[in-house]
């Protein structure tokens, strides 16, 4: 139930399997989860070991139990799509698919690989209930992911 709710929040925490992080994310009720959500995002990925922050913008789409799509428009158009059975990255019309279990019903599971979750130091989201506007994921190696979303 806890996982289900964190669902996040919108996409992102997801990606990192943030639910498994050490920072508590206040559970929300299932009712708080939208069946669908879409909007725009600004993502800042800070890579600690090279001290570089990569910024990208784009759109996202979330369909509960079916699809999570993270479409980067700038600086390089590409699409990351996760379905219950696969995830795929499409660049210039070429798609690379990986058969990696995901469950968009529980965003937190998109990155099912629990080991990835364990790289996460913590997750902060605002607001803590319902679909978040802002998500921060801190990684144990110093990397950081800041995402702002607008529905």
């Amino acid at each position: 139930m806890c996982k289900r709710s964190t669902v996040f929040l919108a996409a992102l925490a997801v990606l990192c399997g943030a639910v498994g992080g050490t920072v508590a994310v206040t559970p929300a009720s299932d009712a708080a989860l939208p069946e669908t959500a879409s909007g725009t995002f600004i993502q800042r990925k800070t890579l600690a070991d090279v001290d570089v922050t990569i910024t990208s913008t784009g759109t996202f789409r979330f369909e509960k139990g079916r699809l999570f799509e993270w479409r980067t428009l700038k600086p390089l158009p590409s699409t990351f799509t996760a379905t219950p059975t696969n995830y795929a990255i499409t660049v210039n019309g070429k798609t690379t698919t990986r058969n990696l279990k995901s469950n968009v019903d529980e965003i937190a599971k998109i990155f099912e690989i629990k080991e990835v979750k364990e790289f996460v130091k913590g997750v902060k989201s605002e607001p803590q209930v319902g679909f978040p506007n802002k998500v921060t994921v801190e990684f144990k190696n110093g990397d950081r992911l800041d995402i702002e979303m607008k529905r």
Binding site: C16, D49, L76, F111, V137
Partner: peptide
């Protein structure tokens, strides 16, 4: 391009990009 897409995508790098 595929590498850049991975980098700009939501997935965190598993190994150091250095």
């Amino acid at each position: 391009n595929a590498s850049a897409a991975r980098l700009f995508g939501p997935v965190p790098p598993l190994f150091s990009v250095k």
